[in-house]
Computed example of a mutant assay.
Amino acid sequence: MDSEKVIRKLQKRIGKEQALKNVHQRRLTEAQLYIRQLESNQEKLLQEKNKQEEQLLRLDAYYQQQLLVKQVETIWQEFQRKLTIELLLADQSQELASAVLETEVSKLKEQIYQWIKLTLPLN
């Protein structure tokens, strides 16, 4: 009878240990699932960050393009103003007007070239 009591006590103890093992196994499984979810969320956040950075780069490129257009328009308007003044001040002969026009066009080309050279990065 003593051996039966010992066996029952051991079986109860084994049952408790098995139940405890099952609880720990379930918690481990839940923790692993939680870790996988966090890793998945981290990947999604990284992808979103990359998308936002790409969008910022596109917006910056668009801004730089618009800035370039605005500055070229300003140079063009200044050219037109100077040319009009020069033509009004110049003798009305066609040769002189043509020379003034050629000079102003050359100045405009040089201004645009210098501005582009300073503004746009060389790759």
Results as ranks from 00 to 15, higher is better:
1 M>I: 05
1 M>E: 07
3 S>R: 12
3 S>D: 13
4 E>P: 00
5 K>C: 03
5 K>D: 10
7 I>A: 13
7 I>S: 07
8 R>M: 14
9 K>F: 13
9 K>L: 15
10 L>P: 00
12 K>A: 09
12 K>F: 10
13 R>C: 09
13 R>H: 13
13 R>N: 13
14 I>Q: 06
15 G>D: 10
15 G>M: 04
15 G>Y: 03
18 Q>G: 01
19 A>G: 03
22 N>G: 01
23 V>I: 14
25 Q>H: 05
26 R>T: 08
28 L>Y: 08
31 A>L: 15
32 Q>Y: 13
32 Q>S: 10
32 Q>K: 15
33 L>W: 08
34 Y>T: 11
34 Y>S: 08
35 I>P: 00
35 I>H: 04
36 R>Y: 04
36 R>E: 12
37 Q>C: 01
37 Q>S: 04
38 L>W: 06
39 E>M: 12
39 E>C: 04
40 S>W: 04
43 E>P: 00
44 K>T: 10
47 Q>H: 07
48 E>P: 00
49 K>Q: 08
51 K>P: 00
51 K>N: 11
51 K>G: 03
53 E>A: 11
54 E>T: 02
54 E>H: 02
55 Q>C: 03
55 Q>M: 09
56 L>D: 02
56 L>M: 11
60 D>S: 14
63 Y>F: 02
65 Q>G: 04
65 Q>T: 12
66 Q>I: 03
69 V>N: 03
70 K>G: 02
70 K>R: 14
71 Q>S: 05
72 V>Q: 08
73 E>K: 12
74 T>L: 08
74 T>H: 06
76 W>V: 15
76 W>F: 14
78 E>W: 04
78 E>Y: 05
80 Q>E: 14
81 R>S: 14
85 I>W: 03
86 E>C: 04
86 E>F: 05
88 L>W: 06
88 L>Y: 07
92 Q>W: 02
92 Q>I: 04
93 S>C: 05
93 S>R: 08
94 Q>I: 12
100 V>D: 00
101 L>F: 14
102 E>I: 06
105 V>G: 00
105 V>T: 02
105 V>L: 08
108 L>A: 04
108 L>N: 00
108 L>H: 00
108 L>D: 00
109 K>E: 03
111 Q>C: 00
112 I>E: 01
113 Y>W: 10
114 Q>P: 00
115 W>H: 09
116 I>Q: 11
118 L>F: 03
120 L>A: 12
122 L>N: 02
123 N>W: 04
123 N>K: 05
